[in-house]
């Protein structure tokens, strides 16, 4: 060990120090990026929503607005577009009520373990459809599910389905009854609508064209 002429490249001390420096640098960079990202993904405010100022994650009151998903030429992928005001379960929600509703919905999504069958923002189980843009899914908009559940609006149909999923089977693989109450179902729908308004950099890709493409059928048989 005490050889004077030994190369620095074989020095354990050299590599230990290099490892510490590289790890430290990477950690500092990550923390710095985390601060930047946290700023960009904190929830926007109700006032900004009203003024049309975009946030990657809008305020809970986004449930009072029409949400769409459209192709953006400049960014080269689809982005959520917040439109005119629309009623959610027949009323406009105050900032406080909307926030409480979203809180309840997020809690319920965890309590009912949605993530171990579905994916949320693409993460979770792969046993059931992705819920990232579920609010915008053609299935709820083309009359299919409102017809089956006998409800007038999309949100009511969603809530009804969540409360009694196995009564409205659309596939051999069904969603089980998780004992979701009326309040929880409404909150979950708010959670889903809010999630659909998150700017996910274009994930899932081509989602807005899904209905059109389905008409053509798949040619992958």
């Amino acid at each position: 060990m005490s050889k004077k002429s030994a190369s620095v490249w074989t020095s354990i001390r050299f590599w230990r120090r290099s490892a510490a420096w590289v790890t430290g640098t990477a950690t500092v960079l990550l923390i710095w990026l985390t601060f930047d990202t946290m700023g960009q993904i904190s929830m926007g405010s109700d006032a900004d929503l009203a003024k049309g100022i975009k946030h990657r994650i809008p305020a809970a009151t986004v449930i009072n607005y029409h949400v769409d998903y459209q192709f953006d030429q400049k960014r080269g992928h689809e982005v959520p577009v917040i439109g005119e005001k629309e009623k959610f379960f027949g009323k406009e929600w105050s900032a406080k009520d909307a926030a409480a509703l979203l809180h309840h919905g997020k809690l319920t999504s965890q309590a009912k373990n949605c993530m171990n069958c579905h994916t949320l923002l693409g993460n979770g189980g792969y046993y059931a459809p992705d819920l990232t843009k579920a609010w915008l899914d053609a299935k709820w908009n083309d009359g299919t599910m409102t017809g089956i559940t006998g409800k007038n609006t999309k949100e009511e149909a969603m809530a009804e389905f969540l409360m009694h999923p196995s009564q409205y089977p659309t596939h051999a693989r069904m969603m089980p009854d998780l004992g979701i109450t009326q309040d929880e179902a409404v909150a979950l729908v708010a959670f889903l609508k809010h999630m659909s308004a998150i700017d996910t950099n274009g994930f899932p890709r081509n989602f807005s064209q899904s209905a059109k493409r389905l008409e053509g059928g798949t040619h992958a048989h």
Binding site: K54, R56, K74, R75, G76, H77, D199, N201, G202, R205, A220
Partner: peptide, 12 residues
């Protein structure tokens, strides 16, 4: 959120 990155379409 200006971005120069373009996400290309990839065909099946």
């Amino acid at each position: 959120m200006e971005s120069a990155i373009y996400m290309p379409q990839i065909a099946a």
